[in-house]
């Protein structure tokens, strides 16, 4: 039963998203509402997924599936999230040349792109709440690390792995060695 639920949830995630970070709103909505992962685990898996090879959607499927129902759960979730690729995209492969210049697909994206962008902005705002607010007050250390990260990403054009490495090191020093509150 849980396997079917995992499969179905990740099927919805797959069909409702267009790759990469646009999957985060769907993923966090499904795994939080079923209680498969906590908000903190969602943040962890995004960090882990960015560090490890492989696309975010599949890594989240594997991780949430494992947490909920072990290896069978991970397989069910992966199959779900891959369904669009092995159905819709297989059809598109067969009709590739008709499909490439399809105006209808272009029109659909006119509406879907802003919706996805808006939901990603929503995720940024709600994750900011859980990542930089410790329940009693602002997590100033986290905000400081985040500010440097943003600077590295936007001004220095650093890659995501560099930024994560820097943040892990900063976490070790500030939280681990100096014992600042999280």
């Amino acid at each position: 039963m849980i396997l079917l639920k995992l499969f179905w949830s990740f099927l919805l995630i797959g069909f409702g998203s267009f790759g990469g970070l646009s999957m985060i709103p769907q993923i966090s909505n499904e795994v939080l509402s079923h209680g498969w992962m906590t908000a903190e685990q969602v943040t962890d898996i995004v960090a882990i997924a960015e560090m490890t090879p492989g696309p975010l959607g599949l890594n989240c499927a594997s991780f949430a599936g494992m947490q909920a129902a072990g290896i069978p759960g991970a397989i069910a979730a992966n199959l779900g999230v891959l369904m669009p690729s092995i159905t819709l995209c297989a059809a598109a492969a067969v009709f590739f040349h008709k499909f490439r210049n399809s105006r209808v697909m272009q029109w659909i994206l006119v509406g879907v792109r802003p919706i996805c962008l808006g939901m990603v902005v929503g995720v940024i705002l709600s994750l900011s709440g859980s990542n930089y607010w410790s329940g009693t007050g602002l997590n100033l250390t986290g905000i400081a690390i985040g500010a440097v990260d943003l600077f590295l990403l936007l001004k220095c054009k650093s890659g995501v792995p560099t930024v994560l490495l820097f943040s892990a090191a900063a976490g070790l020093v500030l939280y681990g060695a100096l014992g600042l509150p999280a």
């Binding site: 970070l21 960015e50 962008l117 943003l150 892990a168 900063a170």
Partner: peptide, 24 residues
Amino acid sequence: WVNAAMEGMQAAVVPIIFGAAVNL
């Protein structure tokens, strides 16, 4: 120690998503 490193990386997640959103 792992926890401290993960807390640090958690702080990076929002900036990373923000950076990707700018490209979107």
